[in-house]
Design a protein around this nucleic acid. Structure first.
Lengths: 184, 184
DNA sequence: CCAGTTTGGTCAGTAACATTGACGCATCAG
DNA sequence: CTGATGCGTCAATGTTACTGACCAAACTGG
């Protein structure tokens, strides 16, 4: 693989530090453009498998996201889910409502706060989520296996770095023990 | 950071290899679900900065993708661009046409094959692409800097692994010397 | 208990991005 | 000349998202 240049430039003799700086800048630019390409292609193909299943059911990626995060945090409130997805109430409603009507998700009033409608996957919902998950599992497992554990750790670090503070908090909250509420 | 478990499970004494297998499976599942989260949040925030600029101009992410790939491969044909983006002619036309009309992209007939309309960024187009690029550069540079070069290499390997064969070819073709045509 | 906030749902309108199928035109290759 | 290719365009459709406004139920502090 030829295009493996990471961060060494100084060993190439340059006429001036200015030229070296330009070269550095160029390499950085190439690196970043490569990152753009990788994220575009990688993300697209990562979601492609699940998308195929979803279209059969007349759903979209948004439905998958709801199933995914409700599955990760059973009993999540609508508000917390909105915070995670960072979409509007209306946008969520449009996908959540059909999911409830079709028996993929149940809404139960909160014990402490009965205004809340705690969201949980039904068996049917969990089964669909698992089906979608298994499809993506193949893709990710293959990538992880080929890349190796060190690369996986690096992948995680970079992806976390790409997130804004808000998303990082939300991500941490999902990963955290499901007892206490999400970051608010 | 507590949730750093990567791939060690055997050190925890288990009652049976079956239980160990279940545990392994569980960890793998958690790993993969984490990957889903990371990709969702990371990709979203990666594109968020550029999206802000685009809405001001009445454009969307699709316009950015065209600017990006035309910028990477000046003189690309419409067909090759379609192959890279993996969208339909109509979808491309809807974004490409305004870009041409508004003077971001020029179409010039191919020298060898005059049916082709080779796409190139105008100065205006290159300026916008650079503006969008600079916005994403901040995000990626920060993530790269915080994660370190080893992590960056790992990130690249995993992202490449997520791609399907077709996307990997397309990605390689973009990275390759811009002389010969894209993989067809 | 009442006022004000919070939680959630819902109305209507708009827009970006993508799809499918069909057709036309110019051009290239045999 | 014929067929295939590259490109553009017609029309209809669907998903995902946005905005602003409004309402009902339930919690919270005084």
């Amino acid at each position: 693989m030829p295009a493996k240049s990471s961060a060494q430039i100084a060993d190439v003799p340059e006429r001036s530090s200015l030229a070296a700086g330009r070269n550095l800048l160029f390499l950085r630019e190439e690196e970043l453009r490569l990152a753009q390409d990788l994220l575009f292609f990688g993300y697209r193909d990562f979601t492609a498998g699940a998308d195929e299943i979803l279209v059969e059911l007349g759903m979209g990626r948004a439905h998958h996201r709801v199933l995914h995060f409700v599955g990760r945090r059973p009993g999540i409130t609508v508000g917390d889910l909105l915070g995670i997805l960072a979409i509007t109430k209306q946008s969520l409603g449009r996908v959540l409502q059909p999911l409830v009507e079709d028996g993929y998700v149940t809404q139960t009033p909160g014990r402490n706060d009965r205004r809340q409608r705690l969201l949980t996957l039904t068996e049917k919902g969990a089964a669909l989520e698992r089906r979608l998950f298994d499809r993506q599992r193949e893709t990710v497992m293959r990538a992880y296996r080929e890349a190796g554990p060190v690369a996986v750790e690096g992948f995680r670090r970079v992806m976390r770095g790409l997130m804004g503070d808000q998303a990082r908090d939300a991500c941490d909250a999902i990963e955290a023990p499901p007892a206490q509420g999400l970051a608010r």
